[in-house]
Amino acid sequence: MLAVSQEAIQCYGPRCIERAREGSKYCSDNCGLKLATNRLFQILPQRIQHWQAASSIAEENNRNILEAIRENQQEAKNHLVQLDLRHKNLDALIERAKNATIDPDAENAQDEEETEMSMYCITCGHEINCRTALRHMEKCFAKYESQTSFGSIYRTRIEGNSMFCDFFNPQSMTYCKRLKVMCPEHGKDPRVAEDEVCGFPLVEDVFRETGEFCRCQKRKCNKHYCWEKFRRAEIDMERVRQWIALDDLFEQERHIRVAMANRAGVLGLMLHQTIDHDPRNPMQKIISNPKQPIAASN
């Protein structure tokens, strides 16, 4: 068989008279880079002028989305400030209750309200008295909750006080990710003194606070068992939700900023071109470079 001879071609490099390599249009890599550089210098300025003259709809949409994201971020930050204020008010309320004295009449009134009705525990299923239902359910839940671990290899890094337990387990090399105030495995309820007042803020019409608080003995008050812990857990859980929302918003902002930065990049300008087809709103006239770009295939 006779080998088919290929016709020799001249190198496409600027001012190069050498023979191109086999399977290529250039005699060397330098010639290809020189031609690509010349194309950039001739085509790119004109594309940049087109980009600056014509408004990009995608750019405007991204700016509007960024404004909405910033508003949502500010709302989440304001909500976090309000939650911190609620936390301080709760601490002040607990401190005020510690300085109060026990009211025997309040204990007698609570004893009169007690009933002999029974119910079933939602955790263990045993029948319990309604008078001690809250106390039993809390202890039962803590017992079963401590049997399961929620861990992460990363320690929580957050502004202000952390809501998570973050107890380090050397065996599994993880940090506990339960709420600090509700962690039954690594946290214990403080010891209650005999003369300590319950301090639960009393309400009327379900939600409206009266400014008064329960003055029963805290050890015997089954109606408001562990109310401080539940209030703190409610605030901390809402803080977790807001921080998760902020993290999602920051991630959305990052994606949009990356898209906006890549849109005006060299590769995007070289590969894409905007053509205005609306005669009622013509694009701004652009003084193009009289030199025609070099049209050569790769």
Score class of each variant (00 low, 15 high):
235 I>H: 08
35 L>D: 00
104 P>G: 06
246 L>E: 06
297 S>E: 06
198 C>F: 00
17 I>C: 12
239 R>W: 00
143 K>S: 14
163 M>Y: 08
239 R>Q: 03
265 G>A: 03
207 F>N: 05
135 R>N: 06
280 R>E: 11
79 H>R: 14
290 P>T: 15
297 S>P: 02
94 I>K: 00
219 R>M: 13
43 I>F: 02
95 E>L: 11
258 V>T: 14
28 S>W: 01
47 R>A: 09
140 C>I: 07
48 I>T: 05
47 R>Q: 15
115 T>D: 08
193 A>T: 11
220 K>N: 01
166 D>L: 04
85 L>S: 15
288 S>Y: 14
226 C>S: 05
5 S>C: 07
198 C>L: 01
96 R>H: 13
275 I>M: 05
270 M>C: 14
68 A>F: 01
231 R>K: 12
40 L>V: 02
213 F>C: 06
216 C>G: 00
104 P>M: 04
170 P>V: 09
6 Q>T: 06
287 I>T: 15
6 Q>Y: 06
202 L>E: 03
101 T>G: 09
114 E>Q: 03
29 D>H: 09
291 K>P: 03
108 N>Y: 02
123 T>W: 03
222 N>M: 07
120 Y>A: 07
8 A>I: 13
172 S>A: 12
198 C>W: 00
261 A>G: 10
201 P>T: 04
88 K>S: 12
234 E>H: 04
252 Q>E: 08
291 K>E: 14
5 S>Y: 10
141 F>D: 02
65 I>V: 06
200 F>A: 01
188 K>I: 12
66 L>D: 13
266 V>F: 02
287 I>G: 07
169 N>K: 08
203 V>C: 08
298 N>E: 14
293 P>I: 09
292 Q>K: 11
136 H>G: 06
222 N>T: 10
89 N>K: 15
2 L>S: 03
231 R>C: 02
67 E>T: 14
65 I>Q: 06
134 L>R: 04
173 M>H: 15
19 R>M: 13
75 E>L: 11
233 A>P: 07
181 V>F: 07
285 K>E: 15
289 N>K: 14
146 S>F: 13
243 W>A: 06
38 N>C: 05
266 V>T: 09
186 H>A: 13
252 Q>G: 00
25 K>L: 12
270 M>N: 09
215 R>I: 04
6 Q>M: 08
50 H>Q: 09
140 C>D: 14
86 R>Q: 15
294 I>C: 13
124 C>P: 02
128 I>E: 01
53 A>H: 14
269 L>Q: 08
137 M>Y: 02
150 F>M: 11
283 M>E: 02
136 H>E: 03
194 E>I: 07
161 N>C: 11
76 A>L: 08
96 R>T: 10
